[in-house]
């Protein structure tokens, strides 16, 4: 019995390590270069070294961090900053709703899922949605803990080091760094789609996002997300009904 328990723990640790290794992949390195850009942004805004590192670990969502720094630059009150960041982060709810059934094993405790949910952000979400189906259900939380915690800690280190070291990147290189994130999201999100409803939702979202940003800046992501997502789902359903009828 004892030997069996040991073997089980060993397997969990192995899957944790596989999660760690998954963090050091092309998507992981692309995310790190996005945080290079963030570090430069935070420094320019006058956010301190430790505050920038703290923000990276505790918020762990790049768009939300960019919005928060934007609110700091604008001199917004705490209440206004909460509102802006909360609006930019509503998307985390459907992302977590989608990942929980993938991550939940036969005996996963709710508290484990609540703690792991902190690591949900675009990169770990895209990586996990692609890799979790190949992980044994009982090992998925260990795998995701390895992946999520490693991504978070590595990027806290990246933000701190860049803040201290790099003061003057050439203009062109700095611009190119800011382009990495959207290109990575664009290609990897397209590849991780399970059904074409998701691809269609992506097309709608990418077009509606900037339009909504011009028309209703505070609600742009909500409008584009719910409008684009529900629209794509309805078209997908209608097409399927016609085929099966």
């Amino acid at each position: 019995m004892e030997a069996l328990d040991e073997a089980r723990e060993d397997a969990a640790f192995r899957w944790y390590l596989r999660g760690v290794r998954t963090a050091y992949s092309i998507p992981g390195f692309i995310l790190m270069s996005s945080f290079v850009g963030f570090s430069a942004l935070a420094k320019a805004a006058g956010v301190g070294l430790w505050a920038s590192v703290f923000m990276t670990g505790i918020v762990w969502a790049l768009p939300a961090q960019v919005v928060l720094v934007g609110a700091i630059i604008a001199g917004n009150s705490l209440a206004a900053a909460v509102f802006a960041v909360a609006l930019s982060s509503v998307r985390l709810t459907p992302m977590v709703v989608a990942i929980v059934p993938e991550m939940r094993g036969p005996r996963t405790r709710p508290i484990t899922l609540y703690l792991l949910s902190h690591f949900v952000a675009v990169t770990s979400w895209v990586l996990a949605m692609a890799k979790l189906p190949d992980v044994p259900p009982a090992r998925r939380t260990a795998f995701y803990f390895g992946l999520g915690s490693t991504l978070t800690l590595s990027n806290m280190v990246v933000v701190g080091s860049v803040y201290v070291l790099a003061d003057t990147l050439p203009r062109e290189i700095s611009a190119a760094l800011f382009m990495l994130t959207p290109m990575y999201f664009l290609t990897s999100l397209w590849g991780s789609a399970r059904e074409w409803a998701t691809n269609l939702a992506m097309v709608f979202g990418i077009v509606l996002g900037p339009i909504a940003h011009v028309l209703a800046p505070s609600f742009d992501l909500l409008i584009a997300g719910f409008g684009g997502g529900i629209g794509a789902y309805v078209i997908y359903r209608l097409a399927h009904r016609r085929r099966t009828a």
Binding site: G37, R194, A201, G228, G229, A232
Partner: peptide
């Protein structure tokens, strides 16, 4: 839910390209 989550992230992509921050 997946469609809505994806459209939300796609909107972030669109905004990062059309209304970027920093040097971009």
């Amino acid at each position: 839910v997946r469609a809505i989550a994806t459209a939300l992230v796609a909107a972030v992509i669109g905004n990062l390209i059309l209304f970027p921050s920093g040097e971009l």
